[in-house]
């Protein structure tokens, strides 16, 4: 047997760059710590303040809620856009055109003030009795407005993502499903969409992370989210930057958790497709100093 002694490549520049960055970070930290205006003690003090906690809950609920609305709406709009019914297609396109074409901040303020033109919402038979009536201001609380405003907007963006996913699935999959007699709806939900998910999930994860942050816009209608609460507190104690740091730490934590979740969901939905197992783990640090050993491409496949 012949031996082939191998000397792997070194990466000295990675070390140099890392040291430089560390030095920069240390210098910055030192500068900030010497600053007497910024009160460090305020940050941990408010980290778990009940108002911040309730803001966190609202942020989560608004984000997850409007993402769910966006997902359902996105699938619906995407299916409408690829249907052969021209009326449905036009409806979907008009919706997307409108909600993508106007700023979400404007939409939020608009929905919040919708009571001005429609003081009450009612369901009834025209000319006949009212079955149900509610004052718009009772229905459209800040939280409901936030969900609706962000959800409708998200739906417009998600529909593009879902459509790209559906289009990415090989046409043969749909044809084979139709050919064995599956009705169109089953073809969509059992065969096409599950495979489209592989393409849909990565950008959806990005949408979700973006939405976590965009949800702070609802503070303009005082919806009680993380930023609303931080604002309320600093309006009392004038510790503006400290409270913004508190809010930012929570946003960072949430987005980090979301990225980790995204990784595992992506892996789950690549079933049946060959993916390199060695890329497991959401961290890039793992690979950073690695000597780049050969990575075997394995197939992901197990009975479910």
């Amino acid at each position: 047997m012949t031996e082939f002694p191998i000397v792997r490549r070194r990466h000295p520049w990675r070390w140099v760059l890392s040291l430089l960055l560390l030095a920069l970070a240390a210098a910055l930290a030192w500068q900030v710590s010497r600053n007497e205006v910024f009160d460090f003690a305020t940050v941990p003090k408010y980290m778990f303040d009940p108002r911040i906690m309730s803001g966190l809950v609202v942020t989560l609920y608004v984000t997850i809620g409007s993402m769910l609305i966006g997902l359902v709406l996105g699938v619906l709009l995407a299916v409408m856009r690829i249907s052969d019914n021209p009326v449905l297609r036009a409806m979907a396109e008009a919706f997307i055109w409108f909600f993508r074409g106007t700023p979400v901040l404007v939409q939020l303020i608009f929905w919040f003030n919708i009571g001005i033109i429609f003081p009450s919402l009612a369901i009834g038979i025209p000319g006949g009795p009212m079955l149900f009536e509610i004052s718009t201001n009772t229905l459209m609380t800040a939280a409901v407005t936030a969900l609706l405003g962000l959800g409708l907007n998200e739906g417009a963006y998600m529909s593009e993502i879902v459509r790209a996913g559906i289009v990415s699935v090989d046409r043969g999959q749909r044809e084979a499903a139709l050919a064995i007699g599956l009705p169109p709806q089953r073809v969509l939900f059992r065969i096409v969409l599950p495979q489209a998910l592989r393409v849909i999930i990565p950008p959806t994860g990005n949408q979700f992370i973006s939405l976590l942050k965009t949800s702070s816009l609802v503070s303009v209608i005082a919806a009680g989210d993380l930023l609303t609460q931080a604002t309320r507190i600093y309006n009392e104690n004038f510790r503006i930057l400290e409270l913004l740091v508190v809010a930012s730490i929570w946003y960072l934590l949430l987005t980090t958790l979301a990225s980790i979740g995204q990784f595992y969901i992506e892996r789950r939905f690549s079933r049946g497709f060959a993916i390199p197992k060695s890329e497991a783990g959401p961290s890039v640090l793992k690979q950073f100093f690695g000597r780049g050993e050969g990575k075997a491409v394995q197939q992901e496949g197990r009975p479910s």
Partner: peptide, 21 residues
């Protein structure tokens, strides 16, 4: 779809559902 259920088809490129065993 109900009519197609009684007519089998085999394609050049197999078209097995990739996400299913």
């Amino acid at each position: 779809a109900a009519q197609r259920a009684g007519i089998g088809m085999v394609f050049q490129r197999f078209n097995l559902f990739q996400h299913m065993t």
